[in-house]
Amino acid sequence: MARIILDRLKERFGADVLETSSQHGDDVAVVTPARWREAAEFVRTDPRCACDYFVDLSAIDCCDNGDPEARFEVYVIAYSVARKHRVRLKVRLPEDNPEVDTLIPVWVGANWMERECFDMFGVRFKGHPDLRRILLYEEFKGHPLRKDYPAQQAQPLVAYREGTYDKLRPFLADEGMPLDRTFKAAQDPD
């Protein structure tokens, strides 16, 4: 397995690698926010890691751990096409003003993922050239994948029409609602 990456990381960053694990065969290393970019750069360029393939970047809202200093976990997954191993780097960010260095200089592909992460979680990326919302619209308030955002709280851009039916009403058509219209069998053309 790719223990080699974890070993190399520990060798290089010492105490800045906060923990490592290999649950279910996925190698994970948690690094400090200060050395996040450096660690990613190392994983990509070190000849024995050589993780040149950018796989994924996103975040997890760990609001249940009771530690406001580590509410968000941002992770990045990288893969080495040549060596066929992958690693997941993580960084823990505080609840207010979660901010971490951007990884665009390391993998260009991080651009949209970081925008998405900002959109969904409100994590900011220092040095990102174009940190806009990507999946939602500019007028949207809040960050929906945070656990405290109610899933059904919509923010419509177009005012709803008057007198529309409630969500489930059309299915009540059989009870004599104005929607009721039975489908007449098609007549034979003469």
Binding site: P144, Y149, A151, Q152, Q153, A154, Q155, T164, K167
Partner: peptide
């Protein structure tokens, strides 16, 4: 049934 979709 969520924040992103117009319910009909």
């Amino acid at each position: 049934d969520n924040y992103a979709t117009v319910p009909g």
